[in-house]
Simulated assay, not measured.
Amino acid sequence: MRICGAGTVVYESLWSILGGIHKRILMLLKCLAAISSSYTTTSNSLSVFVSSSLSSPSKTKFLPSLSRFSVKRSCLLSQTRPSIAVSRPSMNLLNRLGFGSSRAPENMDSSIPQGPDDDIPAPGQQFAQFGAGCFWGVELAFQRVPGVTKTEVGYTQGLVHNPAYEDVCSGTTNHSEVVRVQYDPKNCSYESLLDLFWARHDPTTLNRQGNDVGSQYRSGIYYYTAEQEKAARESLEQQQKQLNRKIVTEILPAKKFYRAEEYHQQYLEKGGRFGFRQSSAKGCNDPIRCYG
C-alpha cells in the first residue's frame, strides 16, 4: 500500500509539473506571436550575418537596412572584389504556424499581378522586360545602351499583389527580379537588347545565377508585342545552336510590373555597396562590379 501511495503521489506530481510546463509554453508562443512582426527581420538579419562570417568568400548583396540581405551572383564580367556567400532570408517560423500578422486580403488576389503590364511608355518609346538574375548589374548594362531612355528594376510574374523585397526573397510569391527598359526603337533595336540580355547571364541554369539561388533569379524574356515575342523566340533558337546545354529561359507575356524599392533603382550608378559609383554613360565598356 505504501508503494502504491507513493507511486500515485509521484504520478500526480509529474502531471502537475507537465501541466505547468504546457501552460508556460503556450504563454511563450503567444508572447512571441505578438512581437514576431517587429523581430522577424532583425532575427533573419542576425542569422545571415553569422552565417556570412563563417562562410568562404563569395558575393554579398548588402542593402541600406540591416533587415535586407540576399544572395547575389558573381558577374560574368571581370571581378575586382572577393565575395561572401549568404543565404536568402527564411520565412518566419511563427507565421508558418499561423501566428503573427497576415497579409491583407487584396494582396492575395492573384488576378491583379497576373494581369498585363498596363503602364504606358513615353510617346514614341517602347517597353522591354528582362529577368537575368540580380537586377543591379543587369540594369546598369542596359543603362549604357544608346537609345535606352529609362530603366527600372522591379518584380513581376508573381502571385502576390504589391510585393515587398522580403516577400520576393521568401521564394513563395514566384516573382522574378526584372529590369524594365524603355527605349527609342528609332535609335535602339529590340534585337540589340536581346543580344545584351544573353551576354549578361547564363541562360542554362534553372532558377540560379552563380551563387544566387531561387526562382526570383530565373532567366526570362517578357514581351509586350507579337513582334517582340517572335524576335525573342528566334533569338533563343540562335543562342541554343551555340550552347551544348539546354536553355531554360522562359518567354512569356509581360505581366504587371511592381517597381522595386527606391534604394534598388540605379543602385550601382548611385554607388552600390562600397559607395564607388559606376558609370552609366552611353557606350561605356567599364567592367560592371555587380555589388559596387
Rank of each mutant, 00 (worst) to 15 (best):
P116N: 00
S58T: 11
Q125L: 11
N107K: 13
L77W: 11
Q79D: 11
S58Y: 07
L94A: 01
G115W: 00
P113W: 04
T60N: 13
F135C: 04
Q79R: 04
M108Y: 09
N95D: 12
A85L: 13
T60G: 12
E106Q: 12
E106F: 13
R73I: 05
S110W: 08
V71H: 13
D119S: 08
K72I: 12
S67C: 14
N92G: 05
A122H: 13
F130H: 02
S53C: 12
F62G: 14
S58D: 09
M108D: 06
K72G: 13
L97Y: 05
F69E: 14
S101M: 15
Q79Y: 07
F127P: 02
F99D: 00
S70N: 12
L54C: 09
N107Y: 11
A128Q: 03
G131M: 05
L66W: 14
M91C: 07
A85E: 07
F99E: 03
L77T: 15
L63N: 15
S53T: 11
F135A: 04
R96F: 05
A128K: 03
V86N: 08
A85G: 09
R81N: 10
G124H: 06
S87K: 13
A104G: 05
P116Q: 01
V71Q: 13
S53E: 08
P123K: 06
F62A: 15
P64G: 01
R81D: 11
R103G: 15
R73N: 12
D117S: 01
D119F: 08
R73G: 08
G115R: 03
S55N: 13
V71A: 14
R96V: 03
F69R: 14
N107C: 14
R81M: 10
S101F: 15
F130V: 01
D117R: 02
S110D: 11
S55F: 03
D118Q: 06
L54H: 09
A122I: 10
L76T: 06
S83P: 10
R73K: 07
L63A: 15
L66M: 12
P89L: 02
T80C: 07
S55P: 14
F69S: 15
K72M: 12
D109V: 06
G115I: 01
F135I: 05
P82K: 01
F62N: 14
N107G: 07
Q114S: 10
S53W: 08
I112E: 03
S70E: 10
P113H: 06
S87R: 10
T60F: 12
K59I: 08
P113N: 06
G98Y: 02
S70H: 10
R103I: 15
P121G: 02
M108K: 12
P89E: 00
F130A: 03
A128P: 09
A104P: 02
F127K: 02
S102D: 08
I120L: 13
V86Q: 04
L77C: 14
G133R: 02
P64T: 05
A128I: 01
I112Q: 03
L66G: 11
